[in-house]
Design a protein around this nucleic acid. Structure first.
Length: 194
DNA sequence: ATACAGAGGTGTTCC
DNA sequence: TGGAACACCTCTGTA
């Protein structure tokens, strides 16, 4: 996506998550297990391959992930756990308290911290501008804008603290956080991919 | 060419 | 109890 096209394409991007089937939601669930420190396009390829190749064990899963997601051995473990975890958490996705939902996902899903739990909710259209995906790029931008003092998250509570500042900032601008997130991202690398 | 920082972090251990 | 230190472990862009 070209930077210049951001305003017109962003709605398409956000709406693309509005009505997902359970399988599509599950794919996003897996995708967000893979993305940390990794290339998003490659991670999506890996998710598609997992569905096609149906690996039977951790080793086979790791082979698929190798070369696409960093720390593929660790992440193979997460993916192996994911099916069972999914059956446990999928009903909780109807929870309307998004903060609470995000926090419980971060706590109960192996491989999810606050950031990736937020990422997942955004990708299935449920972040509702109540939770922020605080990654390096967003933190860097927020620091440059003077919204926060540091771009290094020290702890869980620190994440929540910085998230509140981002939320206040987006409210003061009357621009939804989802859109600021995408804007910062397109500014960083000229494209948007999940 | 070769080196090296940066990549949409999280889990475990230890105190 | 909460947080710092460390393990995980590889591709890509840049100089």
């Amino acid at each position: 996506m070209e930077k210049e096209n951001y305003p017109t394409l962003k709605n398409t991007f956000l709406q693309s998550f509005s009505t997902l089937s359970e399988e599509e939601e599950y794919k996003e669930f897996l995708f967000c297990l893979l993305t940390p420190q990794s290339n998003a396009q490659k991670c999506w390829t890996a998710v598609e391959q997992l569905f096609i190749l149906k690996p039977k064990n951790e080793e086979e899963t790791a082979k698929i992930l190798n070369g696409k997601a960093r720390f593929h051995n660790n992440k193979a473990k997460y993916v192996q756990n994911a099916k069972e975890t999914w059956s446990k958490i999928k009903n909780s996705l109807n929870n309307t308290d998004i903060r609470e939902l995000r926090n419980s996902l971060a706590k109960n899903v192996k491989g999810y911290g606050l950031k990736e739990a937020s990422h997942f909710l955004r990708n299935i259209g449920k972040s509702n501008n109540n939770v922020a995906i605080l990654d390096r790029h967003i933190l860097k931008n927020l620091k440059e804008l003077g919204i926060i003092e540091t771009n290094k998250i020290k702890s869980k509570n620190h994440y929540l603290e910085l998230e509140n500042k981002f939320i206040q900032f987006s409210k003061s601008l009357e621009i939804p956080m989802d859109e600021l997130d995408l804007l910062f991202w397109s500014k960083e690398n000229g494209q948007i991919f999940k």
